[in-house]
């Protein structure tokens, strides 16, 4: 079950599986973000290319406003996959 929550400080928490099916739900919340934002992946089990595509499009939009997404709590595997995919140069990894 996928879940996306934004706390009072503006940090976004993802949990479950972010895949093609759950992208619409994630997009609804992420489209409300218009300034730099921290995304916490500690409880995320899996992210598909559709989810990555969504994050890249949000990043593209935010970078046009001198803002951007940073990632926290990436699992070792997800960290490796994002590095391999060349995302390290696009997002901030905490």
């Amino acid at each position: 079950m996928f879940e996306i929550i934004r706390d009072e400080k503006g940090t976004v928490f993802l949990s479950g599986r972010l895949d093609a099916a759950s992208c619409a739900e994630a997009r609804d919340l992420l489209d409300e973000i218009h300034e730099s934002c921290l995304i916490d992946f500690s409880s995320l089990d899996y992210i598909a290319s559709a989810g990555l595509g969504l994050l890249v499009s949000v990043q593209r939009r935010l970078m046009a406003k001198e803002a951007g997404l940073s990632f926290r709590g990436l699992s070792p595997h997800l960290n490796d996959v994002l590095t391999l995919a060349g995302f390290e140069g696009i997002f901030d990894f905490e």
């Binding site: 290319s49 990555l52 595509g53 890249v56 499009s57 990043q59 593209r60 994002l82 391999l84 995919a85 060349g86 995302f87 696009i90």
Partner: peptide, 11 residues
């Protein structure tokens, strides 16, 4: 594929 995903969004 990661590079293509980025290019698709203009990176």
């Amino acid at each position: 594929k990661g590079a293509l995903l980025l290019r698709q969004h203009g990176f």
